[in-house]
Design a protein around this nucleic acid. Sequence first.
DNA 1: CTCTATCGCAGGAGATCAGA
DNA 2: TCTGATCTCCTGCGATAGAG
Length: 412
Amino acid sequence: MASKSYDTFKYLRSGKYDWKVQARVLNLWRGYTKKENLSNPSIYYYWIVSVAEYMHLFLDIQIIFSRETKISDLEESDVFIEKVAFDFYDLGDLEELSKQTTYLIDVVGVIEEAELNLAKFKNRLGEPQTQIKFHICDGNSRVKVTFWDAFAELFHEAIEEGFEWPLIVIIGSGRVTLWKEEVDISNVGATTFYINYNHYSVNHLRNMLKEKNFIEEQNTILKKEPVPLLNIKEIKELPEEYLEKQVLCNVKVKKVNTQQNWFKHICTSCYEEAKKVNGKFNCICGPRDVPYPEKWFNLCVVCCDSTGEIEIVLENVAGQKCYGKHVCDILDEDDESNFPKSLNTIEDEDYKFQIAIQNGKGPMESKKFVAKDIVSEKYPNNNDDNQPRPLEESYAEHSTSTFHLDTLSEIN
DNA sequence: CTCTATCGCAGGAGATCAGA
DNA sequence: TCTGATCTCCTGCGATAGAG
């Protein structure tokens, strides 16, 4: 048997038990076996003892390792196998894939957000968790991506490394789920990411980005209406039909209102405000306590420009961007229950707010102005001097033990 | 291991049975 | 009665789904 030549994945089939293949482990993460561990990713050959017929959407076979499977290292110079291989899916096809839990998927897309921030919160069990959320777009569709905890922090560190924006990301072996009726790609142990990687798919997207209509098409997908830039006088005079619409406005923060609550408690399930009743937080989404509500900015500031003054409520995203901190960070620093003095630091600063016009609370207040975001000029930034910078290694949470070789079968 | 809750299976320990 | 084989119950762990 030792002299037997290698089989290729293309010809593997069930019913025969002594296949011998050369393969590169593209992705390796810790699984659950009681005794045996496998070492770091490298090249192996395997005696495939059983090839199970496996009925599914994408691949014809699944390779199962048994006690009889023999694995040997191969020298890099002995074989030529690509170091990466992706099996990309269109972002528009992911909804169907979100209904299954067997397979992980590879996608590539342009990150839409101009800035990506880590969100820290406590889950319903009081455990601190970290997440980073963004959307990717392939020119035809867009999907939400949520990375969790250490993987989110790894991703956040990676994007700080000075890549060309907009970032083009390949997500390898992401898990597709439906979250609040929206397709969401999240990470599992196997998930990897490659930022501005030197791959034809990335180069293709970047070429598309240079065409004018990519951004236009993307905006069409987002059904974004252009947001008008108005001054304070114009905003105040907006007619009723502008309720629930958004405008942009360049303002200077004149005064931070220290007389009102500067943050509110948010239910971690439905993101509505949680109210304190008898010492416990309750939410409208169901008869349950919210033991660890999130804390979101809800800070009143008086702003001005050359045409007048206006009171604006900074919501969470705008507040985080103003201070570069989360509410809990400010609370940690200022453990007094009084209004934190550090909140005054934005006075006399200039901002371009994206403001939603909302219904006021009472007869004295017909309209309310809520800053949803701060507009950054960072995106898009096609600076040709800034060449895409591929990562030498993918970022992944590699550990030891079992393999998932779903993507390998496409190599040969 | 994302983390947690839950389900289901594998395997160990002890009980039971059959044959010498 | 002893010993080995088989059966049953229980526990712990792996797999999976769901949450944020």
